[in-house]
């Protein structure tokens, strides 16, 4: 089966800045893919290339197996898009805006929109210009979902949403994927990836640094461990164990970080009069910072 989204060496340059470099990405049907990266990494550039708002410098985009450059109208029929820099027609009420956009898609059925608006606690009778930032964002989310597209392209969908609305958004994203739909969204909020993404791609400086399942990223992540012993110990013992780094000793306590299997480390510790060990679940923040660090040490 064709992947729903496929990019081939997708590159976008603006003058001297390369916003996106040789991006090869595949997202398959039913998958929630999270595009993660710091400001200016190229997330918005990638998503706008997908919906043909901007054109690649080189490389190409295939949606549903078809080259977007050949016929982006057909592709967009099946796509719902939430812009990163969301702007709405301020003089229209939410209901009117949804009706207008639905009309452009020959999609007369507004029940999905109204149901989602209710879930997000969004008042569709107010004019967009009167809405608060978060409520405007909700309207943006609803218009992307309203025609039940095969593919959702969401640029920072959770930005500005309160925790309740974020939870509803994530639930809606999951439901969409469970029903067979595909979602590609961007964020720099890492916990969001953990909650909804099946796979994550980390973009740094326009390059895709890594793509993996959230679980694998976590497995390969640095894990912070803290050991307490009945007598002070020597840091050297730990330093020699492969995969262990950042060892700090203060009295009877040793803190370190380890990547991969912790077996050897724990066995060594057990032989030294171990009293207690605590392990922090690695969060994506660490994974993310780790990649950033690696890249920076690579550069300098």
């Amino acid at each position: 089966m064709n992947p729903v989204v496929r990019t081939e060496r997708l590159t976008k340059r603006y003058g001297h800045t390369t916003a996106l470099r040789d991006l090869d990405l595949e997202v398959s049907g039913g998958e929630v893919f999270g595009l993660l990266g710091p400001n200016g990494a190229g997330k918005t550039t990638t998503l706008r290339l997908l919906v043909d708002l901007i054109r690649p410098t080189s490389g190409r985009v295939l949606l549903f197996g078809e080259d977007v450059a050949a016929d982006s109208v057909e592709a967009r029929r099946r796509v719902g898009y939430l812009p990163g820099n969301l702007a709405l027609y301020d003089d229209l009420t939410g209901a009117k805006l949804l009706k207008l956009l639905a009309g452009l898609r020959n999609h007369a059925d507004l029940t999905v929109a109204h149901r989602l608006a209710e879930r997000l606690d969004l008042d569709l009778d107010r004019r967009a210009g009167e809405l608060s930032k978060g409520n405007r964002q909700k309207l943006g989310v609803v218009q992307a979902f309203q025609h039940q597209p095969d593919l959702l392209v969401l640029d920072e969908p959770a930005s500005g949403l309160d925790p309740f609305a974020q939870r509803e958004l994530h639930a809606a994203v999951r439901e969409h994927a469970d029903a067979g739909g595909t979602v590609l969204f961007s964020s720099h909020v890492l916990s969001e990836m953990e909650q909804v993404a099946d796979r994550v791609g980390i973009l740094l400086d326009g390059r895709l640094a890594v793509v993996d399942r959230v679980a694998n990223l976590k497995a390969n992540a640095l894990r912070a461990l803290t050991f307490t012993f009945d007598t002070p110990v020597d840091a050297g013992v730990f330093d020699r164990i492969p995969g262990v780094r950042d060892v700090t000793v203060s009295g009877c306590t040793v803190a370190c970080r380890v990547v991969g299997n912790v077996g050897e480390l724990v066995r060594a510790a057990a032989g030294l009069g171990l009293v207690n060990v605590t392990s922090a679940e690695p969060d994506l923040e660490d994974i993310f910072l780790d990649y950033v660090e690696k890249r920076e040490s690579h550069v300098t």
Binding site: R76, Y81, N85, L86, L88, Q143
Partner: peptide, 14 residues
Amino acid sequence: RAGTMDLLVANPVS
């Protein structure tokens, strides 16, 4: 400039 062109052109219209 207003930014709403994104919303419009993301629809299936050429």
